[in-house]
Amino acid sequence: MKKRVFKCFTNYEKEEIWLNQMAAQGWHCVDYFPCRYTFEKGEPGEYTYRIQLLDQVPTHVESAAYLEFLEEAGIQAVASSMRWVYLRKKTADGPFEIFSDRESRIAHYRRIIYMLLPLGLVNLLFGLGILGRWEPINIFNLGGAVLLAMPMVGYYRRIQALEKEGQIRE
């Protein structure tokens, strides 16, 4: 049995939590298209889900090598969207975290911020009429800038908290 759910997230960590809540109810994500999730009914809690932003698009050689390495480790990529990949691992095979130390976690947050920042800036400039002539429709650019800024602030706070901890622990 399959079902489709339409839902949009701006923060990938909240998205992860939701995917795992769905999995706990036996709904396992098998496909993703922006704001559209396809779930397949299975054993509750069979899989743990994680989302990662890759350095390169999934078809790039580097990413392909990484995804192959994940497969060896029992981790399956169920979907991708631009540079985002949706990963899952059988819960019975043990805990599943993509990053196991502070440095790599910070690097991942930074990678996301660097991707969002130019998009946010362009939207802001159009939204304020600094780029191009301002039309009422540009209000959507302002909205976009705010939508992009919110997760960026969230990730930035996570980085700061991690860096603070990094001052006393390796």
């Binding site: 990662q52 480790a73 196991s100 790599s104």
Partner: peptide
């Protein structure tokens, strides 16, 4: 060793205390 071998080796040595995340390992 290949990547997965390193993961397994570290897990065995540390008796599951340290599990290298695949993203962390690959980046390193």
């Amino acid at each position: 060793l290949h990547g997965y071998g390193i993961m397994q080796g570290v897990q065995e040595l540390t008796k599951d205390r340290l599990t290298l995340g695949p993203g962390t390992l690959y980046g390193a």
